[in-house]
Design a protein around this nucleic acid. Sequence first.
DNA 1: TATTGTTATACTCTATAACTATA
DNA 2: TATAGTTATAGAGTATAACAATA
Lengths: 160, 160
Amino acid sequence: MARPEKTAIPETDRNAPAVGDELLRQFIGYNMKRTFLVVREDMHRVLEPLGLKVATFSVLSVVVENPDISQSQLAQALKLERSGMVVLVDALENDDHISRNRVPGDRRTYALRATPKGRRLWEKARTVVEAHEEALFGAVLNEEERALLLNLLQRVSHAL
Amino acid sequence: MARPEKTAIPETDRNAPAVGDELLRQFIGYNMKRTFLVVREDMHRVLEPLGLKVATFSVLSVVVENPDISQSQLAQALKLERSGMVVLVDALENDDHISRNRVPGDRRTYALRATPKGRRLWEKARTVVEAHEEALFGAVLNEEERALLLNLLQRVSHAL
DNA sequence: TATTGTTATACTCTATAACTATA
DNA sequence: TATAGTTATAGAGTATAACAATA
């Protein structure tokens, strides 16, 4: 008798005979979807105060790692379309986090570089994203398990 | 000298100094996104011949597992909005895979049940989704590692 | 007043196709 | 002919808000 009858109980608890999704839980894909949506939402939450979206954080990361990269190479690295990169690079350029530089040999392409401001922002973003993962995964998994999950996902992702 | 000079090489290989995303690869979330998008795309591919989408497969699964469930409970179980369930249940009902049954005590709700046809479809769908996961993950992970990945994702997902 | 199902609407993310300027 | 960047457009997947019927 853990639940006194007069206590206010949410409607969903009163009627529900515990709706289960055990059939779906046997699939890696379903658990990954459920997890990923929460991760993405929390990423959005921690990046918003920095003026970044999840996508622009990714773009900034690749530009920081690969100075003078072109938008096409960027799209290739992130598995996105070239057309989608335009607005993302626009946003980062407008905030002076990256710069589009013309290339002497080829007037079609840009050489993208992170500005000093962009590099400082990226360091700050890395910190908050690391904290976000620590908070989300650290509550359930120990260090070894988190490293294991990362390793498994890295291997699968690289193979696909 | 593994590459003879005269061989036709894709443009991306000729110019590219190997664009990396190692900074992002340190994050679980990024690897999960990259993996999840491929998984979802492949799920779509194997379910399409059965006349199912990823979302309707999920709905059908929960209805099979929970006979006489309502649309609101369904939305709760799948973490979707009630409004979104309408079109999904419509699709499954139109194909005679589930039925909307009126409830004696409450004329607002439906009691959803899978039809015999719907149950047969679900068994077939389960088979192809299992094969899809075997194909995607089995190529990189052994049985033990796949079980481990499933277990880690289940635990994280349930905690979120 | 609250809940179920419903509709209309809007928003995010991403892809496709066509264009331009260069090569 | 082919490529880089751009633009316009469309699609999928969801969420939000308001409504009618019912509780």
